[in-house]
Amino acid sequence: MSVRQTATAVRGRYQPRISLWWWLTKPSYLLFVLRELSSVFIAWFIVFLLLFVRAVYQGEGQYERFLDFAANPFVVFVNLVALAFVLLHTVTWFVLTPQALPLHLRGRRVPGGLIIASQYVGWLVVSAFVFWLVVGW
């Protein structure tokens, strides 16, 4: 039972007062909240991606219209902010992986740094492949 659940179970007798702005009190808390908020920009990008795919399926005219929509300064700005959050997500996710999935080889624990480094290599390879596939060179 966590501390919070204990506090809830005996509501009325013991209720720790935590400010709504607790996440501004320490840089590590702020980073945690920014990392959690990255999910909002991931959702935004998936919607953006689906609109792109739909436009391509609908025909050349719709594809051109989507490119105009994507070039709207406000949309570009949102995507720029989204990129910062998405990169934060990628980096923090890679850091967490060896902690969430400890890997063992021949009875020895694979060092976390090695797992993180191999993720970066995989990321690079997949990104290069997707770039080649989409752009064509």
Partner: peptide, 30 residues
């Protein structure tokens, strides 16, 4: 998402709209 979204976001959201890279011809992307 950690692996696929950054490259797609850079291409679709920034590189094509800002003219860093020409968007692919319709036939290719289709």
């Amino acid at each position: 998402t950690a692996i696929l979204v950054p490259v797609l976001l850079v291409l679709l959201g920034l590189a094509f709209p800002l003219g860093w890279i020409d968007p692919p011809p319709y036939e290719h992307i289709h």
